[in-house]
Each structure stands twice: as structure tokens, then as C-alpha cells.
Design a protein around this nucleic acid. Structure first.
Length: 440
RNA sequence: CGGGGUGUAGCGCAGUCUGGUAGCGCAUCUGCUUUGGGAGCAGAGGGUCGGAGGUUCGAAUCCUCUCACCCCGACCA
């Protein structure tokens, strides 16, 4: 993409309404525009990042055996009356009437709808297990939206729903999601720590929040320091291996980790003092086993092995996709701007032509741009006739992992400058060597 | 939903107390000079001062109502 063609309205000054760093940077980098409180339009760069995150989530869901569907944003109130939640949900639910005065709503979640769909088709235990997910916009009419996309009213969420015949199977479904989540966050360059969450009236140990550590996080969290060094990156997972998956879950739940609501000071203090981590965190996912809470009132039953009706056990598994855009920035930025992990960066490399119009610079920069494009590195070529300083500042702001600066000074001695956004490390090397470094 | 605050050019703000030609910086456009970390000079364009009523010869400014947005708290992916 050529910067001169791109719709990327970056700002030098920070709009006052933005209080936290990710919100400020998202506005300054021209990623989103607020259209109402807690509702955002996604501009090209923001949307590219959103789609990359979404795609990683999708791939890891698919890998774990879940199947993607797409359910509507608008739902009928009748469904929610059947589960009893229409009245319970309160003012957070955006209620709408259609032209026939029928009660509708903009879905805040989809348990009722997926259960209804499941129930309509699945009649036998032989068809289990099933895990269906979708990635769709939700609306919760928060009293007080804030923190930009981190807590908007409209937000993109991946929600998966598992259906199983008995508790053991249901637990395996839960464990698979647990592991898929670890993989998902890891691929985004995030260290997400599963923390025990409130299980409500169901009880048991099957609910976890996935928290990433960031200084500006919304809640206080406590955990054992060893979690920081836990690694899932290069582990091949066999999701059909019940014991193997269970083992991974056990490892990741073996140490203390809790948000302030569930914090137990006595337990925490059993950890050696130098291994205690008390930090701020952002919730980026929540998985929950809720048994028959919805299948029972909605009558989701299958025929069991002996022909008897069995109410299925369910779980639901959410990832805040749009929230992650803000979350990643909170976890990865500096004074100059965003620092994108490679996997979610809107473009892979920034090619900065420091003197547009200079024949040599144009040639070398244009050539590098084309080759990087061909190599699939998704370069962003800053071919604007701007001053070098403002191009560097802009490039740092939008946070692409790599920058190549091509200027007359370097060209004279046959070199360009390759800069790593994260480390700030710069080195001069020939255009060919730079290309090789980035495409190896 | 309680408490507090702000609405003036795309962004950041002054002007409001004490009514009298709507301003500044950045951004934008033109020209010249500049060109390796957000340039300099000269010129230009851009506003129903959030909206509706009212007071007044005259309202960004005073009064009433209203809408939007932000912050703290309670609540939440």
C-alpha cells in the first residue's frame, strides 16, 4: 500500500476525550472514529488489525474442532422470554420494536439463539459433541462506556457454545477451549494468564478469565510469577487427546492466579514473596461451563444411548475481539506510539522514502516496496513528499514492526537503514541485505 | 444510576465573570526557501460559538429548557 493513497488520518495532537493510552493512540493513529458514546467506526488501519486478530481467533477455534456459524445481531424477545432472561437482563439490553410493534433486541450474547438452533436439529447423542462459534457484533448498553474500544457498547466478540452428553465430555470441551485460548493469545504476542473466575450458582471449577498484564489494566490481579515464563508456543496439541489436554489445563491452573474479586490474601501469601505478582490486568476472554442453565428451560435434549431423553450440558466461551485491539496496544507501546506484534500488524514493513523526487531514492525505495509486496510482507510505502522527521514520527506512531529508511545520505554509500520498532535497533545495510533479512 | 465537568474551525484551546466587528496554535491550500527525527517566511480558505426559546438596540457571553460528550463511583467481554 502506498501511503500517499491510503486513508490514514493521523493526528499530532491528542483528542481530549481519550484518557487511556490505547484510546489515545488509536485516535492519533487514525484507527477508529467514535460516532456515539462507546460506538466506533473502524478506519482502514484499525480494520486491518481487527481482521488479523479475528483471523487468528478463527484459526485456533477451527483447529480445536469448533465450527463457525454466523447468527444475527437482531434477535426476537420471545427467545429471551423462554430462558427467563428478557426481564433479568435489565437496561443493558438494547430493546427495539419492529414495524409490527414486535419486541426485538440487539443481541448482547447468543446462548438462547444457539440453543434454539441446536435443539431444532440435533436429536441423538451420536451427534455429540458439538462446538459452534461465531464472530459477530454485540451490543450492551453500558451505563458508562469508556476506554475506547476496550469497553464500548458495540463490540466484536467471538462466542463459542459447546454441547455434550455428560460432565466428562463437557469438561473436555471446556479444556479444549482453554488450550485453544492459550494458543490464540500467544499467537498475538500476548501473555494471557487464566484466572479462576466466579462460577455463580453452578459451582465447580469450570470458569476462567484470561487476563493480560498491562500497567493501565482495569482491574487488580494477583498471580504466581512463574506464569510469566509458561510457554505454549511450540507445543503441538492433539485436541482429541483427553488426558493430554487435561494435563495442559492442570499445568496452567496449578499456581495461584486471581482477580481482585476472587483474591484470597492468605493463599497469595503462601507464594514466596519474590514470586508474587501484583499487577493490573485486562480481561480478554472468559470461558464458562454452565451445565443445563439454558438447555433445560429451552428444552435442548437428545436421545441417549438407551433412548432416554438427556438434557445436554453446555459451555460458552468468549473472546473480546475488538477489545483485543486496545488490549494489545496497552500491552505493547512506548512514548512514540504503538508497537505491533508481527502477527497482528496492519502492515509488516514501513518503507520510508526520505527524499521523494530524488531519482536514486525513488528507485531504491520503489524497488524494495515491490519486492516486499511480492514476498507477501505487506509493506506500507511512505511515498509522500513530507519532511523526514514527520515521516519517522508517523511511522513510529502507527507501530509497524520494521522500518526501512531510504535517504540520499545512505544511498551514496549504497546502504539503507533497517529499524526494529520494538527494540529501536537500527542497522545500515545494502537494500538487498535488508530485503533478505525481512523475507528470510 | 448517583456525583462532577465540558461543548467556540479538522485537532488542541483562549474569549463567557464585566453583552458591543469571533480569536490563537497545529492541521489544510498557494508561493518561495528548506529536506536523516513532527522546518522557515509570506499569503489564503475554513465557524449557523451543541440546539431551542427568552431578556436586550445588540448575546459565544445573561436567563430557562434541552441534547451530546468526558471524568469519579456502582456495573461489565
Amino acid at each position: 500500500m502506498r501511503r500517499s493513497q491510503l486513508f490514514l488520518p493521523t493526528l499530532k495532537e491528542t483528542p481530549t476525550e481519550a484518557q487511556i493510552v490505547s484510546h489515545r493512540l488509536m485516535l492519533r493513529a487514525g484507527m477508529v472514529r467514535q460516532t456515539s458514546a462507546g460506538i466506533y467506526a473502524w478506519l482502514p488501519m484499525g480494520y486491518r488489525v481487527l481482521k488479523k486478530i479475528e483471523q487468528i481467533v478463527r484459526e485456533e477455534q477451527d483447529r480445536s474442532g469448533a465450527q463457525e456459524v454466523l447468527m444475527p445481531t437482531i434477535q426476537s424477545a420471545d427467545l429471551w422470554r423462554a430462558s427467563g432472561r428478557y426481564d433479568d437482563y435489565g437496561k443493558e439490553m438494547l430493546r427495539i420494536k419492529d414495524r409490527h410493534e414486535r419486541d426485538m433486541l440487539f443481541g448482547p450474547t447468543n446462548e438462547e439463539m444457539i440453543t434454539e438452533i441446536f435443539k431444532a436439529y440435533v436429536k441423538s447423542y451420536r451427534e455429540l459433541p458439538k462446538n459452534l462459534y461465531h464472530i459477530q457484533w454485540k451490543f450492551r448498553d453500558e451505563v458508562r462506556p469508556r476506554f475506547g474500544v476496550m469497553r464500548g457498547r458495540e463490540f466484536l466478540m467471538k462466542d463459542a457454545y459447546s454441547f455434550d452428553l455428560d460432565y466428562a465430555a463437557s469438561k473436555h470441551a471446556y479444556n479444549k477451549m482453554f488450550v485453544a485460548y492459550l494458543k490464540t493469545y500467544d499467537r498475538m504476542g500476548l501473555k494471557a494468564i487464566p484466572m479462576r473466575a466466579d462460577t455463580g450458582p453452578i459451582g465447580g471449577d469450570l470458569s476462567h478469565e484470561f487476563i493480560i498484564l498491562a500497567d493501565t489494566g482495569e482491574s487488580q490481579v494477583f498471580c504466581h510469577k512463574d506464569y510469566i515464563d509458561f510457554d505454549i508456543a511450540n507445543q503441538a496439541i492433539d485436541f482429541d487427546d483427553v488426558a493430554g489436554v487435561q494435563k495442559i489445563v492442570e499445568r496452567w491452573t496449578s499456581l495461584y492466579a486471581a482477580t481482585d474479586e476472587k483474591h484470597d490474601t492468605a493463599e497469595f501469601e503462601k507464594i514466596p514473596a519474590e514470586r508474587r505478582v501484583s499487577a493490573r490486568g485486562i480481561e480478554v476472554g472468559h470461558i464458562f461451563h454452565f451445565g443445563t442453565k439454558y438447555s433445560d428451560p429451552l428444552g435442548a435434549k437428545v436421545a441417549g444411548p438407551n433412548g432416554e431423553p438427556v438434557t445436554v450440558l453446555m459451555g460458552s466461551y468468549g473472546i473480546g475481539v475488538s477489545r483485543l485491539v486496545g488490549g494489545i496496544i496497552e500491552a505493547s507501546h512506548d512514548d512514540n506510539g504503538i508497537i505491533w506484534p508481527e502477527s497482528v500488524a496492519p502492515w509488516g514493513v514501513g518503507v520510508v522514502n526520505l527524499k521523494v523526487g530524488d531519482a536514486e531514492c525513488d528507485k531504491v525505495a520503489g524497488d524494495l516496496y515491490e519486492k516486499l509486496e511480492k514476498a507477501g510482507r505487506e509493506p506500507l510505502y511512505d511515498d509522500r513528499d513530507e519532511r523526514p522527521g514527520s515521516k519517522f514520527a508517523d511511522m513510529d506512531l502507527i507501530g509497524l514492526p520494521w522500518q526501512i529508511a531510504i535517504g540520499p545520505r545512505g544511498i551514496k554509500s549504497g546502504v539503507v537503514e533497517l529499524k526494529n520498532r520494538k527494540t529501536g535497533e537500527k542497522q545500515e545495510l545494502s537494500p538487498e541485505a535488508a530485503l533478505k533479512r525481512l523475507t528470510a
